[in-house]
Amino acid sequence: MKPVAFEHATAATLDEARALLTTGAKPMAGGQSLGPMLNLRLVRPERLVDIKRVPGLRGFTETETHLTLGAATTHAEIEDGRVPDVTNGLMRHVAGGIAYRAVRNRGTLGGSLAHADPAADWPSVMAALGATILTSGGRRLPADGFLRAPFTTALEPGEIITAVEIPRQPPGARWGYCKINRKIGEFAKAIGIATPTRLLAGAVEGPPTLLDRVEDIPARLPWLDPAAQRLAAIAVTRAQAMRDS
């Protein structure tokens, strides 16, 4: 379980990152998903480009309507409230349930979205919140639809996520989050999210999917077997109940 030899470079600026990310190169943020894949030799990049210190990928900006979080913001920074929360506590709640603290100290929001594991938390949460993903190519991509298929995103080769723009939730707007998993900190088998206006089913072997009603699950998530559809329905129902409680 040792990676194939690779070159390692640290990008100091976004331009530098762009220049280093040639064919065969891969960006690395927290390394919490990439590290295991390197060790298992599932990926064999020629070059790793550490983007975690690029200034544009850190920090945040806040407006009346939005919070823009740098892609390299860690789960722990969100959990601890070291960046503002515009979701009435939803994001802090979710961050605290990702893996365990050591992983959260390093793992990043952008890395999670780019990795595009449907069982991860952020792809579902960002889709449910109607967030927008900002890229080094200057594109603005809606989080809903960003995860095209398991481990496949709308990013172009060499393009990286620079930030995520999260709409401010109305004050007092309630939410519900239900992550069904084997044990605390494990990847989800099913995620249900309820905001005042949206329902979402996630962690279901395919893209997170917005719903009008729980009953839509069989039609909107046809790739799931009946047992997984049942689990998704339980997650969404429980999220709704949490929101409405």
Partner: peptide, 13 residues
Amino acid sequence: STFADYMLPGASD
């Protein structure tokens, strides 16, 4: 073949 598939109880369990 990894602890992602082989589930051990954690402190919270």
